[in-house]
Simulated scan of single mutants.
Amino acid sequence: MSTVPVSGKGAVRRGRAPAEFAHPVLDRLVHVHPGVAVLLYVPVMAVCVYGARGQGGAWALTGWAAAGYAAWTLSEYWGHRLVLHHEPERGIGARLHWLLHGIHHTYPQDVRRSVLSPVLSVPMVGGALLLGCGAASLPLTFGAGYAFGYLAYDLVHLYLHQAGPRNRLLRHLRRLHMRHHFRDDTRGFGISAPYWDTVFGTSLIRGGRAGAGDSR
């Protein structure tokens, strides 16, 4: 078993993180290739859109898809802030934190540690479908919008770590996220939706700009 550092407080290391489990299959279930997220959630979106036929007009269904996306952005912010950055000092909680997020802060360039583990993403997306489209009887496009938001977050987060964006918006998102990693991991929890940091008082923007020189 690896040592369990606390995210943002241990040394940042380059390259790939070592396997966390003796059995490689188990390790691949926890830390997956980014393509797995696409394979999992594109079909979910397609099934939800197809199944929403007859649940409302085109504009209404589009509106529910937008609501699902907005619900995801709040899940992204609060999940990152309260779950992924809940950092127990010892025991199973510390181990889980390391596996689900601490390892990403220590090895920020490891592709397999830059996408959210299915251990978290499947319950989140599945829960949105069960609660929103099941219990609350919302149109299935709500679930499609939520799944789209999750997949967009995963791919944007991966891109911010692995690429050098030329687009102005993506450069801005990268500066904010690198500041979260290398300057202050107690702020900047909205990755694809940083406006929630402004709303909830955890913004990393100072003096109107996102810290020049943070694009590591």
Rank of each mutant, 00 (worst) to 15 (best):
V122W: 09
I103N: 14
R112Q: 04
V119L: 15
Y107M: 13
S117L: 10
Q109S: 12
I103L: 15
L129T: 01
H105R: 06
H101N: 15
H105F: 09
S121A: 15
H104D: 09
V125D: 09
V119T: 07
Q109K: 10
I103W: 05
S121N: 06
R113T: 04
S117F: 07
L116T: 13
D110F: 04
L99A: 14
L116N: 07
R112H: 04
P118F: 09
P108E: 06
V111I: 11
L131G: 03
L116M: 15
Y107E: 13
L100G: 14
L130Q: 01
V122Q: 08
H104A: 12
A128E: 01
T106E: 15
P123Y: 03
H104L: 10
L129P: 00
T106Q: 14
L130D: 00
P123Q: 05
V122G: 11
P123W: 05
P108Y: 02
G126W: 05
L120F: 06
V111K: 06
G126I: 06
H105L: 10
V125G: 12
L130K: 02
R112G: 03
P118M: 12
Q109G: 07
H101Y: 14
G102K: 08
S121D: 07
L129H: 05
V111T: 08
L131D: 01
V122C: 12
H105V: 08
